[in-house]
Design a binder for these strands. Structure first.
Length: 519
DNA sequence: GGCAGTTCTATATAGACAGCATGTC
DNA sequence: CTATATAGAACTGCC
């Protein structure tokens, strides 16, 4: 017995057309793709191979995708690695892939029109409300993918209703309904903070008056009819920026005692300037709240570090620091099964963290735990566990792993920059190392080897296991040994790399000399 | 008793835009 | 609060 989606898919293929099927969750996208794969007859082994090779160690997810794509069907969601997503989109456009089962990622992203768009459900799980109707705008975005103007005169968008009643509701709600008002992004506090600081840093806003002028001209103000309330919000933001020491206002400064005209004095009182730190924060595109959090944590780290000099400093607190930010969201959620284990782990680690644990009754407590789990995940990554292990242990798919690593890298870079400006030497040193470790997913001991081009964590570990632990060891090592470990071309290449290194160190004095045998 | 197959139940749920300068298996 | 896929528990029936 075929279900409705299988039948629709089959029919689309028989028409020699393509379809895009939107589903509410990743699980259902994958499931549907597999169901459809069962009823299609295509055979595209070369695509399957590319999909599987996207990762060095294919995960279960990769294998499922591979077996679907052989049949001309693919699932598409944020859990996939960018490479795989691109491949799917390209092959859909080229016509080899006939059906894509996607979550709404695809609707918002690149242009992949299809003759037919099928929307399985217009409801989606939302944290606050349970299953709820999605916005009309989102429906339009999905339906808008139907039809490829260059090739076809029309396209079809099909919405599936589960019964007559739902059919009517969908009709009134979506077909006849108006898209909701576009709300201004400035209404979101973090965006407002960031924006305000950047305007002050660049000099576009120089005093309270120009601040009011600027914001009253925005779309935000246009929507927000109560201007007094709006002014209150702005002033509150401004005050925060001042307490965080990213901005100085006239009130902060002392009077110079010089004679100035009353009006100028008034202007000086309300003059707004970004501090040096404020400017850097703005250049880094950081939410000021995050920046403050990073600065405070770094200072705490530096203090702790000095307290226990002899102990090898632990990077876990720094990882937690970057995980407990708005930027890292959405954080890994804690399933009820693992709650106890995570709690236990937290109790062990708690002492070392750079901030206090909120009370268990606090609204922020859950967030704190999620951040902690996310930290455990990053920590596991830098212990050299592979993607499959992360998928099994944390239920994090490869695409999400990459996304989180990228954010982590960015935040570590930003922390490093802020640390430099504050002259937090030890913290900066640790951050620099940590950033490399996060990038490569490696333990600290591999860092010297990772400097080499062509050497990632896998090869570095291999060398390390054979007693080659740093650049000096590579110089000392026999070419044949390295050759055996890494292959001919790479062995010669890294020998050359360390060889050149010896030329560069004493700048100018030994120009052109290649001294391999010297070591 | 030991198992294979079945039904029941608990659980979880979409996504992405920043800086910077290139390269893992 | 409306759904649905999935993993694992609990249950069934068969030898």
């Amino acid at each position: 017995m075929l279900d409705e989606l299988q039948r629709l898919a089959l029919e689309t293929v028989q028409l020699n057309k393509q379809a895009l099927i939107f589903l509410p969750s990743r699980a259902s996208a994958e499931k549907t793709a597999e169901d459809i794969a069962k009823v299609l007859q295509f055979h595209l082994p070369e695509l399957a191979e590319t999909v599987e090779k996207a990762l060095s160690n294919p995960t279960k997810q990769c294998q499922r995708l591979a077996s679907c794509i052989t049949k001309g069907v693919a699932f598409h969601h944020a859990g996939l690695v960018a490479k795989q997503r691109e491949l799917i989109e390209d092959e859909f456009r080229s016509g080899k892939v006939k059906i894509i089962c996607a979550t709404p990622t695809l609707a918002a992203g690149v242009s992949t029109p299809a003759f037919r768009v099928i929307i399985k459900s217009l409801k989606r799980f939302s944290a606050n409300w349970g299953m709820d109707w999605i916005p009309v705008l989102e429906y339009l975005q999905m339906a808008g993918r139907a039809g490829r103007p260059e090739y076809e005169k029309f396209g079809e968008a099909i919405v599936i209703a589960k019964d007559e009643k739902e059919k009517k509701e969908i009709y009134t709600r979506y077909i006849c309904g108006k898209p909701e008002e576009i709300y201004s992004k400035l209404a979101v506090e973090p965006v407002l903070r960031t924006h305000l600081l950047s305007l002050i840093a660049t000099g576009s806003i120089r005093d309270e008056k120009s601040m009011k002028d600027f914001f009253s001209a925005t779309f935000w103000a246009h929507q927000y009819s109560d201007f007094t309330e709006l002014e209150n919000i702005m002033n509150r933001m401004l005050q925060r920026l001042e307490t965080w020491q990213f901005v100085t206002t006239g009130k902060t400064k002392k009077s110079t005692g010089e004679f100035i005209a009353a009006r100028e004095l008034e202007e000086q009182k309300t003059a707004l300037h970004a501090t040096q730190m404020g400017k850097r924060v703005s250049e880094l595109y950081l939410d000021p709240l995050t920046a403050r959090h990073l600065l405070d944590s770094l200072a705490a780290f530096q203090r702790n570090d000095q307290k226990k000099k002899q102990e090898r400093s632990d990077v876990f607190p720094l990882l937690f620091m970057i995980c407990h930010t708005l930027e890292m969201r959405p954080l890994l959620r804690i399933k009820s099964k693992e709650e106890e284990k995570i709690q236990e782990e937290l109790n062990q680690r708690y002492e070392t963290l750079l901030e206090k644990e909120p009370s268990a009754y606090d609204a922020e407590y859950e967030e704190f735990l999620f951040a902690f789990k996310t930290t455990l995940f990053l920590d596991t990554w830098i212990q050299e566990r592979d993607e499959d292990y992360l998928l099994e242990t944390f239920d994090v798919r490869p695409g999400e792993v990459r996304a989180k690593l990228e954010i982590a890298d960015w935040l570590l870079y930003a922390s490093e920059e802020l640390g430099k400006l504050q002259e937090l030497r030890e913290a900066v040193r640790e951050l620099r190392k940590l950033r490399l470790r996060v990038k490569y997913g490696a333990k600290e001991e591999l860092l010297p080897l990772l400097k080499l081009k062509g050497i990632g964590r896998i090869r570095a570990r291999k060398l390390f296991l054979h007693g080659i632990r740093d650049l000096g060891d590579i110089k000392k090592a026999d070419l044949a040994t390295v050759h055996q470990l890494l292959g001919k071309a790479l062995a010669e290449d890294i020998k050359k790399q360390v060889g050149e290194e010896t030329i560069e160190i004493p700048k100018g004095t030994r120009k052109g000399q290649v001294s391999l045998e010297k070591f």
